[in-house]
């Protein structure tokens, strides 16, 4: 009744999502969307973790996903706070305007 889906398919999806997330980080100038792209990449990684956990029959992969989620939650909280501060100072959130460290 059930068709077994190969591990590589999940990994392929994960891979695709990860690459698109990376592309999003690189081509978008809105820091909020960059953050979302990062979340996308994390999700892709999580998917790979869960797929591997399922494939090898151990729960450790799921536990790692749990930690990743926690960290990304913390990261998003701090990152959004930073974006707010930057907006307060620059009245813009364009990351290309934030180049005062230019050498």
């Amino acid at each position: 009744m059930t068709q077994i889906i190969p591990l590589s398919w999940y990994l392929a999806v994960s891979m695709l999502l990860f690459s698109m997330g990376a592309l999003g980080v690189l081509i978008r100038r809105n820091p909020l969307i960059i953050f979302m792209s990062i979340e996308l990449m994390l999700n892709a990684a999580n998917l790979a973790f869960v797929a591997f956990a399922r494939s090898f029959g151990v729960p450790t992969g799921q536990i790692f996903v749990f930690f990743v989620m926690t960290v990304s939650a913390a990261e998003v909280a701090v990152g959004l706070a930073l974006i707010i501060i930057i907006f307060r100072n620059k009245h813009s959130i364009d990351v290309d305007l934030m180049n005062s460290l230019k050498g």
Binding site: V25, L26, V95, D96, M98, N99, S100, L101, K102, G103
Partner: peptide
Amino acid sequence: RRLQNGFVR
């Protein structure tokens, strides 16, 4: 120096 252009991206 030009590499260090300050653009995060």
